[in-house]
Design a protein around this nucleic acid. Structure first.
Lengths: 328, 328
DNA sequence: CTGTTAGCGCCTTCAT
DNA sequence: ATGAAGGCGCTAACAG
């Protein structure tokens, strides 16, 4: 691998000059610039990023921390992040935390040592203080750190949940249940709240209509089986995410009831999977790709010391009507 | 951030000594080691990887090149790679190539400049020469570069395809079609060949029983619709991957035929999705996680100059009987 | 066992 | 407009 020194020698100039043409910094005569450019081409020279990083204190690398890339929500997010980062000349390191605080901390340490320029966190075993201790640009996705100064992008969970629930009501459902996500996740809490906003004052409502599915398909399936045993008259289900909605579909199918005629189901997220099951899942779609792309842009702005237009972004969600609910 | 110099000062020793205790290289008296350790703790010192990389020529970072992390096959692979890399102190940079040669080349260039230690390639817009030009440790996954010296891990596509086809035959199918993947992908070619191995000498066989689905669900659905129009008597379908198998399921469902009673379907890959559709998909499962983990281990061996037990690994696949084929 | 010193490759004043 | 030289933080001879 040729170094800047080789280039300078071949071009008959000093390394400083080569550096100048490389970075378009400072003045350099057109002729000498040409000489340098030729030398560069002749040697097939490309600058060594590591060396550059050392003197720059900028690695053009960011970290992306997700719970598990295997969870269908995150590939879309990761793809978005990677796309825009790539566009701006950054490179992204992928980290799976499994929502374990110790794993997360370990990653943070490693990434800090590697002097990454910033990170996008879509996993939250960590507390606000932990995140603040990062002491580098950060954007948190889909996990609000309430009322804080840490930049955030998320979607309007509560409103989305209200939309879903109201939609089921509008479809004529007489008893709507909710399969909720993990208690410790704010977004699960908000979605549950949105459901409550709509149904809690209706006469048929009862807290036992809310069951827990841990954002997992299997759990949701079991929870639904149990739910339909205690409440055989449930005719609408709003699941806190698509995976659980699919679990619910399974349970209903196992019981031999037909979707959407006997029971209607609405999910949340709008992951690609929702179009792959049959019937296709009606869902509240978050703009997953947009969220990732926005987070990436926000992070870059911070890294490049540009002002952020807003600290917190809450993107709109969209109702996508498909096969698990009846048409008009 | 404290530097090694700060530590050396505080401990009253030279930087060399600090470096020695840091890397457990060379001798150092227990007492001075203690002093150093204390200084390290006192200053909360952690070494700067960038600086280390510069003098080491080792970044402990590898690249993972996939076509698209959004394609359900790759998250599982990525997860495996990340898991073992993490175990050995490496960090992984994720790259989506969209199977575009120019994108791939661009990535390679960037990663080279970043002096990554090696890379795992699960995408192949590139030719053998291109890959050899990487001039760094590489492992190619699921894409054989035929008869070459580049380390490879894949699964036994041909045998797997034979298993699938024979299984359908054994189930009593009278006319078995194949939905194949892209012509330019070797694994698609091999799977098609495996199908042919089993059926080409049977009287009902006809080349028009092979249709192309591009490894995509939608295309496969359309292809299946068309297939069942020309060959209404097809009662078994072997799809080159699970996504296409799901597309085929859709087509069959749309036509109002029942799975598995009127038509049986077998997929290939064993992605998580295959358990999520209903009926659950019978498939030839590749050990995706194992393949990723093995590739990662092979890469590390190369990086650390250890000998590879074998240049090419071909892992066994497994028939997983589920709902899209009849039992007993 | 420990310290001195010369790199690793690049950037950036400071002179000229 | 260009060059010389110090520094980024760490490692690895080479002395002692």
């Amino acid at each position: 691998m040729a170094t800047i020194k080789d280039v300078s020698k071949l071009a008959g100039v000093s390394v400083a000059t080569v550096s100048r043409v490389l970075n378009r910094s400072g003045y350099v005569h057109t002729d000498t610039e040409q000489k340098v450019l030729h030398a560069i081409k002749a040697l097939n020279y490309t600058p060594n990023f590591v060396a550059r990083s050392l003197s720059n204190k900028k690695t053009s690398t960011i970290g992306l921390l997700v719970p598990d890339i295997t969870n269908p929500f995150f590939p879309e997010l990761a793809r978005a992040v990677e796309d825009v980062m790539q566009l701006y000349g950054y490179t992204v390191i992928l980290c799976n935390s499994d929502e374990s605080a110790s794993k997360e901390k370990h990653y943070i340490d490693v990434l800090k040592q590697k002097y990454i320029d910033g990170m996008i966190v879509a996993s939250n075993a960590l507390s606000v203080e932990d995140v603040r201790e990062f002491d580098m640009p950060v954007v948190v996705v889909d996990r609000l750190i309430e009322g804080d100064t840490i930049p955030t992008v998320m979607s309007d969970n509560r409103k989305g949940a209200q939309m879903a629930t109201e939609f089921l009501l509008g479809q004529g459902c007489r008893k709507i249940a909710h399969i909720r996500g993990p208690e410790h996740l704010l977004n699960a809490e908000e979605r549950c709240q949105g459901y409550l906003d709509v149904v809690q004052d209706i006469d048929w409502f009862d807290r036992s209509l809310i069951v827990s599915g841990k954002y997992e398909m299997k759990r949701a399936m079991e929870a639904t089986l149990e739910l339909l045993r205690t409440h055989p008259d449930v005719d609408g289900i709003f699941a806190g995410n698509d995976m659980m909605a699919i679990g619910a579909m399974r349970a209903v199918q196992v019981l031999g009831r037909t979707i959407p005629y006997e029971i209607e189901i609405v999910g949340y997220d709008g992951i690609a999977l929702s179009e792959i099951v049959f019937p296709e899942l009606t869902t509240i779609a978050q703009p997953i790709y947009d969220m990732g792309a926005l987070a990436a842009r926000m992070l870059i702005k911070q890294i490049e010391k540009q002002p952020l237009d807003s600290l917190h972004y809450c993107l709109d969600v969209q109702m996508v009507e498909r096969g698990t609910t009846r048409k008009g």
